[in-house]
């Protein structure tokens, strides 16, 4: 049959010569290849002891930041919830009362702030939408696997950054 492009390579099936029919050279070649792999450096990362280094721009678990005096920055404006394409964020806003000035920076604050980690796609749009620099996606923490679905709804108890130590000690001194 005429080939259309004339580029088809004509392959001829030759009968095997003696060394090929003995198979032994081929077997030794194969053995030497596997032996080379035997001494190769292994690609495995032994997970719980070693972890793969994370990228600097990795978007992991969210955190709600505090300002330099330890007050929550979030003002419950809802821009993050609007920006969220997966609708993972819900919040309830509340008014700051007298005497709570050292807890919340603005007059309005988030009474509850929940992120459903099963819905979240870790796109980072909440971080971009936030006008108060309150929410960030950390590059060193993951939302780990859990047994129950409701454990994936992260409230303020797990999202707000813990109070820095020097501020807690100075507050205790006062």
């Amino acid at each position: 049959m005429q080939s259309l492009s004339n580029r088809a390579k004509k392959l001829e099936k030759k009968p095997m010569n003696l060394s090929e029919r003995m198979y032994l050279p081929a077997i030794f070649q194969g053995l030497s290849i596997t032996m080379r792999h035997f001494f190769k450096k292994k690609a495995t990362i032994k997970y719980p002891e070693e972890t793969r280094p994370m990228s600097a721009v990795w978007r992991g678990l969210h955190v709600l930041k505090r300002d330099e005096k330890g007050r929550e920055r979030c003002t419950a404006c809802g821009l993050c919830a609007v920006a969220c394409p997966a609708e993972a964020i819900t919040m309830v806003a509340g008014e700051r009362k007298r005497g709570e000035e050292n807890l919340y920076r603005e007059e309005k604050y988030a009474v509850s702030y929940e992120i459903n980690m099963l819905r979240c796609i870790f796109c980072g749009l909440c971080e971009e939408a936030c006008p108060k620099a309150a929410i960030f996606l950390q590059n060193d923490k993951l939302a780990p696997a859990r047994y129950e679905r409701d454990e994936f709804i992260y409230g303020k108890d797990r999202l707000v950054e813990p109070m820095p130590i020097e501020l807690t000690s100075s507050a205790a001194a006062r």
């Binding site: 596997t34 792999h37 035997f38 001494f39 190769k40 292994k42 690609a43 495995t44 032994k46």
Partner: peptide, 12 residues
Amino acid sequence: VAAFIQDRVGPN
């Protein structure tokens, strides 16, 4: 041996 030949570490 299987693991080493396949560039793995095997049971550890």
